[in-house]
Computed example of a mutant assay.
Amino acid sequence: MRIAFSVLFLATQLTANAAMAQTAAEREACKADYEKFCTGVEQGGGRIIKCLNDHLSELTPECQKVVKANSPG
């Protein structure tokens, strides 16, 4: 299950931004925040990173850094 989540999260994020380099540390930094705020979000089209960005002030500091580094603009 954990591997499936990691692969799913990575695939979603790579789809959202092809130039974005997701590391295991980045995925781990946002795992709890993803599960808390974005589990119902449909994958693809950058929707998960947008969801995390919409909750930026509520995310852990580690995840905030990942989202800021990987958000377009």
Rank of each mutant, 00 (worst) to 15 (best):
V7W: 07
S6Y: 08
A69C: 04
F5S: 10
L10G: 06
A21D: 08
P72I: 04
H55Q: 15
A29F: 04
A4P: 01
A11S: 14
E28A: 15
L10E: 09
G46Q: 11
A21R: 14
A11M: 14
A25P: 02
E26G: 09
K50Q: 12
G40N: 13
G40Y: 01
H55L: 12
V41I: 10
E62P: 05
A24Y: 11
A29I: 08
G73A: 07
C63M: 13
C30T: 03
V67L: 08
H55I: 07
G40S: 07
T60M: 06
A11P: 01
E42S: 13
K36S: 14
S71P: 00
G73K: 11
C63T: 08
K31Q: 14
T12M: 10
C63F: 03
I49V: 11
Q22F: 13
N17S: 14
M20A: 14
F5D: 10
N70T: 04
S57I: 00
H55V: 02
N53K: 15
S57C: 05
K68G: 06
Q43T: 07
G45T: 07
E62A: 15
C30M: 08
Q22R: 09
I48R: 12
F9G: 02
G45Y: 02
A69I: 00
M20Q: 10
I48H: 08
A32T: 10
R27F: 03
V41C: 05
D33S: 04
R27Q: 10
Q22T: 14
D54H: 06
V41F: 00
T39N: 05
C63S: 10
P61Y: 08
T39Q: 09
S71W: 00
C63D: 14
L8D: 09
V66M: 05
R47S: 06
K50L: 10
R27D: 02
Q43L: 15
F9S: 09
L8M: 10
G44I: 05
A11R: 12
T15R: 15
E42K: 13
G45L: 01
K68Y: 00
N17K: 13
Q64P: 08
V66S: 00
K65C: 01
C38H: 03
A69G: 05
Q43E: 05
T12V: 02
F37A: 11
A24S: 08
T23P: 07
A16V: 00
G45V: 04
V67G: 01
G73D: 04
G40E: 14
F5E: 07
D54Q: 11
E58H: 11
E28R: 15
P72F: 02
L56R: 07
M1H: 11
L8K: 09
L8F: 15
A4C: 08
A18I: 09
G44D: 05
T23Y: 10
F9R: 11
A18Q: 04
F9T: 02
P61G: 15
E26M: 12
S6T: 03
R2V: 00
I48Q: 12
A32N: 14
Q43V: 07
C30Y: 02
A11N: 11
M1R: 08
Y34C: 02
T39L: 14
V41R: 02
L56E: 15
K68M: 07
R27Y: 01
M20I: 13
K36Q: 14
L59K: 03
A16G: 15
H55S: 04
Q13H: 14
D33A: 01
S57P: 06
S6L: 11
I48D: 02
I3H: 06
A18G: 01
F37C: 06
A11W: 07
V41N: 00
A21V: 09
R2A: 03
D33T: 02
Q22C: 04
S57M: 11
